[in-house]
């Protein structure tokens, strides 16, 4: 029942926010496909402003299989401070296959379990999107094709909810990175290039976060 309790408390928190929208930090969900660098970004932000991390990063997709929160992350920009709750969500996908994990030297049993958890994670991420977030940071691997069903669908949902959204073109440290391709894919939204891993362009990242979610 621990999970339920946790959920309930999270819900009641959101509820209180619903009834008193001006109080408390906004909850910003970090969304995106698996392996886009969501956790790396979340850790980067959390470390920069709170000193500790949110969760383990990995090259193995679906490393984050449960949404993780970091609350009261206070970001200072231009003398003002913006406080947000960061929610690092599992990567969203339409297919989960355990065979994907086998390539990363994971045993079959473990891979099957991971894929089940990853699937649960997607369900959780979608549920959070429905119920619990006030804004979205959409993280994309700028070295990968952004024109995917998942991206289109998620951005569409986010737009339909009128949530403020920032597109982060991550992994600019990679040679194949093309920020322009990301920007072209979603011209209606602001695209911010960055490398969460290297910490490149984080100043602009925080400026935009403060501007969009403050």
């Amino acid at each position: 029942m621990g999970l339920l309790t946790e959920l309930r408390s999270s819900i009641s928190r959101v509820t209180s926010k619903l009834f008193a929208p001006d109080q408390g930090p906004k909850r910003i969900g970090i969304y995106g496909p698996p392996n886009a660098g969501k956790t790396t970004l979340a850790n980067r932000i959390a470390r920069d402003w709170t000193g500790d991390a949110i969760g383990p990063e990995s090259h193995v997709p679906h490393e984050t299989r449960r949404a993780r929160r970091k609350e009261n992350v206070e970001i200072e920009r231009n003398g003002k401070s913006v406080t947000i709750d960061i929610v690092d969500t599992p990567g969203v996908t339409t297919k989960v296959d355990y065979k994907e994990f086998l390539e990363h030297d994971i045993e079959k049993d473990d891979a099957v379990r991971r894929s089940r958890e990853a699937t649960e994670g997607v369900a959780e991420a979608m549920h959070w999107l429905r119920e619990d977030v006030d804004g979205v940071i959409y993280v994309l691997d700028s070295a990968a094709d952004p024109f995917t069903q998942v991206n289109t669908m998620l951005i569409g949902i986010i737009e339909s909810k009128d949530l403020p959204v920032l597109i982060f073109a991550n992994k600019t440290d990679l040679e194949e990175s093309s920020v322009q391709q990301i920007a072209n894919a979603f011209p209606q939204h602001e695209t911010v290039p960055l490398s969460a891993l290297e910490g490149d362009n984080m100043d602009e990242v925080y400026d935009k976060i403060a501007e969009y979610f403050g």
Partner: peptide
């Protein structure tokens, strides 16, 4: 088992 298709 281990393979899922999700309808987002």
């Amino acid at each position: 088992p281990g393979q899922y298709e999700l309808n987002l």
